[in-house]
Design a protein around this nucleic acid. Structure first.
Lengths: 241, 241
DNA sequence: TATGGTTGCCTTACGGCGTAAGACTACGAC
DNA sequence: GTCGTAGTCTTACGCCGTAAGGCAACCATA
């Protein structure tokens, strides 16, 4: 009998996009060689013809998201300003745009932070940011510090201590509140703060931390600080103090 | 024959400190139930009488380091100032002190960032910091933002993109340089920057990024920014713009 | 058209992981 | 002495990543 339904041939791209889909839907911990293979209706070992090992698959995943950041930021930047020299606005736009990509792939920050190697597209991305800084009058030295200070914000995420979404697992929202309530008398300021902030955001206890606003607040803190450094003098350093 | 060398009884503390020792010496990935048990000259399943499962063991590890931060910061703070009201200096001291603890346990930042739950000691630590902020005149709202902005710096580490030490694995230092060199013509600013910074730090290519100075630079950027927010007016917000 | 290498997928198997189930041992209370 | 009970060990299961090698289809060459 003729084999009418020959499967599409595997390829590195098909493997990576299957892995990315799994990570988006079921979390990063669901990305196993067997699972990726199963989704492609193939045996696990077949993947190794297109990916050296699992590490390389994870690297590929990171490259995918960084690539996504790169293109989306590029598009947004091209649309926004016809090459205006405003580094502050440009960087702000870039970080916020990158953040929309990271929100789509909530597992990415954790993965990026734990990877031992720097994926190639990231160099390109930082080159762009660096170009913006230099174009804005930064010395290479200050720009270097700026890159470090912005850190993960350049890629659109902040180090959230104990971020549930990172690992893709389930989270017990109530447990945290319960534990805080249990220690309430030892945590007077914390409980007051939570109560005060909850009051502002009447109800919606899950959303009383507005990640977006906090991200922008910190981002502006950093950008404004850098701007002040830029005015103060290009060579000014604060190793002293 | 009499059993002269009866083993010391197991306990949650002994399990945790064995795990912590393994993490410090061989990296976090070496912390497996079997390995911890072996170091205690015991079988893996015996650990489960003192620790519910591996997750709880990792939580215990986090609690250990946070506890270490808590006591060391407490000691340093008590010694430094007889309750001076200088929030800026106090926070700076705390973050830098916390950092010395994190440097001792290079696996801790990665673990803390990936844990799904907040360990109890961390509440105590943030309560202290919050008290300092409120004592310095912060509103609860601004203090809340400040906690988020400081983020991991309060615990003594910054989100280093692609930090090799986090995972405790070996790192190919040369590979990064090689890759950068290979893309040199597409990365004019980056290569210029690396060259310039390398020149300042004559030789020592591994150390041309001075983590300590970068940490302090970013920390001061944030603290100075917060101080300005405090002066501008306690209720001032920048959700607009 | 025959052939032999290459490519791509599959099968089997190994060692390591976390841990469920349950047996064995030692000890303290009655 | 007997019996619960707590702590340890044994065995085993189902995951994981992946090494080794088999097999079928294709494709350039003779």
């Amino acid at each position: 009998m003729s084999d009418g339904n020959a499967r599409a041939p595997l390829s590195r791209d098909r493997v990576l996009s299957a892995a990315l889909r799994i990570a988006d839907v079921d979390g990063l911990q669901a990305v196993t060689m067997r699972r990726v293979a199963a989704d492609l209706e193939v045996e696990a070992m077949s993947l190794y013809h297109h990916v050296r090992n699992k590490e390389e698959l994870l690297d590929g995943l990171v490259e995918s998201v960084v690539g996504e950041v790169l293109t989306e930021v590029g598009l947004a930047e091209a649309a926004a300003s016809p090459a205006s020299g405003d580094w502050h606005a440009s960087l702000r736009r870039r970080c916020l745009m990158a953040r929309t990509v990271m929100v789509r792939h909530s597992w990415a920050p954790g993965l990026i932070g734990s990877r031992p190697t720097i994926p190639a597209p990231l160099y390109l991305y930082f080159e762009e940011i660096l170009a913006v800084l230099i174009g804005g009058g930064f010395t290479y030295h200050l720009a270097h510090q700026a890159l470090h200070s912005l850190g993960s914000m350049a890629l659109g995420f902040a180090q959230e201590l104990f971020n549930p979404a990172d690992s893709g697992g389930q989270v017990d929202e109530g447990a945290a509140e319960a534990e805080l309530a249990a220690m309430a008398e030892r945590l007077p300021h914390l409980t007051t703060m939570v109560a005060a902030e909850l009051h502002d955001h009447d109800e919606d206890p899950l959303g009383w931390c507005d990640s977006q606003r906090e991200f922008e607040f910190t981002l502006d803190l950093l950008l404004d600080g850098l701007a002040r450094h830029l005015q103060t003098g290009p060579v000014r350093d604060r190793t002293e103090r």
